[in-house]
């Protein structure tokens, strides 16, 4: 079902119950679910980070980006969330017969531009064409490799009570931009995707404080899904203050109109960091000095209570449980 790809509970179950048992090996890099796997190199220093993602976005072009930028930024970000600096990307195209060559050319140009701007070259690739109506124009897969610096150990299960949650900037822009373009919705102002590569920001954060505990780029399912997954895999409680979440007014308006929660809406150029308290000031200062972290804010903390559960403090001072969305976000009736 389509909900199995929505990044919510159904996606998690697919990985947990179908793929994980099927792919089990003795050297289990899949042991801990994370955006990127890290692999020790025989005899060498550092570790290799390795990740892949497929991009099936519709429409192919949207305000602030296209499937091309997404495919480059998304995989760079997945690799970066292990603390690695990405060194190269691969790409695979699955093209529907009949796609205009000019369209494919524009996508390729955008990918090339994005990769050059990020300083992470695309070094290998593959192309397949399928019959008309078997794909939505074009699907793009990218994989990326990077090197995790010595002394860096970033993974979900390191979330520890006392850690401070930092989000790198305003949330919900990508999801609302794509949705408004796809459905022809207009909200008075043009909302642009926040698609951006985050490895530079991650590098600056690590320079400020080596011992970051967890990084996550909150794409499908939004910040709420990322927090739920991390709370669950580290068996810690997570709390955030609703009033501290940076939600741009136009995103708040669009979400209110559609009955969505900005915390569940996808981002493509933001990260959430779990930082030990002694490093917070330095990390937030470093983020504010970086172009992709200017809007960074502390939004919450890790607690020892209610392990596995995320709790929001509402503006009015009450609290509520924050759930992993089941599958697709469904606009409500009235």
């Amino acid at each position: 079902m389509i909900g199995h790809g929505g990044g919510g509970r159904l996606s998690g179950e697919l990985v947990e119950h179908l793929f994980r048992p099927a792919f089990a090996t003795s050297g289990a890099a899949l042991g801990e679910l994370h955006d990127a796997a890290t692999l020790a190199l025989d005899g060498g220093a550092g570790r290799l980070a390795f990740s892949t993602d497929s991009y099936v976005v519709r429409p192919l072009f949207f305000p602030g980006g296209s499937i091309g930028e997404l495919a480059v930024h998304g995989t760079i970000n997945d690799v970066s969330m292990s603390g690695a600096q990405p060194i190269a990307l691969s790409c695979g195209f699955i093209i529907e017969e009949g796609l205009e060559l000019a369209t494919l050319g524009r996508i390729a140009d955008r990918m090339g531009d994005a990769a050059r701007a990020a300083g992470v070259p695309i070094v290998t690739g593959d192309t397949k064409v399928v019959d008309a109506r078997l794909a939505d124009g074009v699907y793009v897969n990218t994989a990326g490799v990077g090197v995790v610096p010595d002394g860096v150990d970033i993974r979900p299960s390191r979330a520890t009570p006392g850690d401070v949650l930092v989000v790198s900037g305003p949330i919900g822009l990508h999801g609302v931009a794509v949705m408004s373009q796809r459905e022809g919705l207009e909200f008075g102002t043009q909302i642009e995707s926040d698609s951006a590569p985050l490895h530079g920001l991650v590098g600056a954060m690590l320079d400020a404080h080596r011992d970051l505990h967890v990084l996550r780029d909150p794409t499908r399912g939004g910040v709420a899904a990322s927090l739920c997954e991390i709370a669950s895999s580290a068996a810690v409680g997570v709390e955030y203050d609703e009033a501290a979440i940076p939600v741009p007014p136009e995103v708040a308006a669009a979400c209110s109109f559609l009955g969505l929660d900005p915390m569940n809406v996808a981002n493509e150029g933001k990260l959430v960091a779990f930082v030990p308290p002694e490093g917070v000031d330095a990390v937030v200062a470093a983020m504010h000095d970086h172009e992709h972290g200017r809007g960074a804010r502390v939004i919450g903390r890790v607690v020892a209570d209610h392990p596995g559960v995320v709790v929001a403090r509402t503006r009015l001072g009450a609290s509520r449980v924050v759930d992993l969305p089941l599958g697709e976000q469904l606009p409500r009736i009235c």
């Binding site: 509970r9 947990e16 669950s232």
Partner: peptide
């Protein structure tokens, strides 16, 4: 089911008070 249904609201936002929570799924 519905985003406006009372049962969904209690399950979604009040689970901590009213039903035990599974840890480690996801």
């Amino acid at each position: 089911v519905s985003s406006e249904g009372a049962c969904a609201a209690y399950y979604q936002y009040r689970r901590l008070d009213v039903v035990p929570v599974e840890v480690g799924v996801g």
